[in-house]
Simulated assay, not measured.
Amino acid sequence: MLSGCLTNKTKAFNANYMASNLYTLATARGANKDKLLHGTGIFTDDFTNNRLLSAKQLLLLIQNVQHLCTGNDLAFQFGHSLVNTIDIEQPDLVAALKSASNFVGCMRVLSIINAQIFPFMSAHTFKDREHVYIVLQDSIGLRKNQRFMIEACCTALVAISKICVGRRLKFSFLFPFLRPKHIYEYEENLGSRLTFCHPMLSIKIPISELEIPCPGRHLGLNRYALKTVINKRLYKFSLMDKIRSQLRSKPNLSLPEIATLNGLSPASLKRALKDHHISFQQLVDELCCQEALYYLHIQKLKNEQSATYMRFNDVNNFRRAVKRCTGLTPSELRQA
């Protein structure tokens, strides 16, 4: 049952990494230590005893941090702290990143270990002749923590690019929410290429940037480090991302069929998804929405082309699906 699959209750994360970074960040700002850990099931001894925590516990800690601490830079500082301490938690990962040929290789490394080092968000990529679009998606059931994790994730990616390539790459960040009042924090940590009220949460990168060689590139070292990372990896996917992967391979799979693939009854799969604050149909609609936004809103493709890429045999069914998952018709999406 869900072998090798991470859920929000799986205890898989050393307390001395993400939780410790959050705790240090919050207490440095005067947060009450007892209130900070209240309701999380985390204790101060856990930071030195390498106790394993679940993503659910980490999310509860993040909620407490946001409640007890002031300042609009918390998530950005958390993102920086994760990268600044990653060499202690995952030295083989750092070696694999630094020895990659270019940032394409770095992204491959990150995708392999994503569920282990940052279980909160994952990515799906689209590519055209000039750009790669990294679509960010909730991996664990973030709910109120989503904005915090978006800010932390984007900050960490920028910081990792500096480690790999030696400078900040020309990322363009496309956010679905309104321009925040604390825009300075976004510009300071992410750069000036910021778009708000965009329908698709994503990061756009010129392909020419991705092909910039890493100063420390070394094929042999990269292969060895990556093999070590994979051998130490406990989980390849989160539950939500495993189902996404299965649906991308075979979009017409039903809930009972997905349940069978994962060794579950349909009722058990429904309950597991409910624990992550999402339903099977919402996952189906999310993937449809991502593809519709990319092919119609960004690429401005015609219905027939888009339907083919989205594996619809009937254009009318394609129109209905796009309208259901985005709230707009294909023509409205192209004009948006």
Rank of each mutant, 00 (worst) to 15 (best):
Q137E: 06
Q137V: 02
L136H: 05
F118R: 04
S99D: 05
R168N: 05
A75E: 09
P119S: 03
R108V: 08
F175D: 03
T125A: 09
L82N: 07
Q77F: 01
D138W: 03
Q90D: 14
Q116L: 01
S161W: 10
I163E: 12
A100G: 12
S161I: 05
I160W: 01
I160S: 02
A123I: 05
E151Y: 02
M149H: 13
C154R: 01
K98G: 08
C164Y: 07
I134L: 11
V158G: 07
V132W: 08
L169Q: 03
L97P: 01
F103I: 00
T85M: 04
V83D: 07
S101Q: 09
H131A: 00
D87V: 09
F76G: 05
Q146H: 11
A115E: 09
N84C: 04
C154I: 00
D138Y: 07
A96I: 09
H80L: 12
I88A: 13
Q146D: 06
G141Y: 12
V109R: 14
I88G: 02
V132Q: 11
N114R: 15
Q116F: 02
C154D: 04
F175A: 01
C106M: 08
Q116G: 07
M149G: 08
Q90G: 00
A96W: 09
G166W: 00
E130T: 14
V94K: 15
V158D: 05
Q146G: 03
L136V: 03
I117K: 06
E89F: 15
D128K: 06
V165C: 00
A152K: 03
H131V: 00
P119D: 08
C69Q: 14
V104F: 06
S122Y: 14
P119R: 07
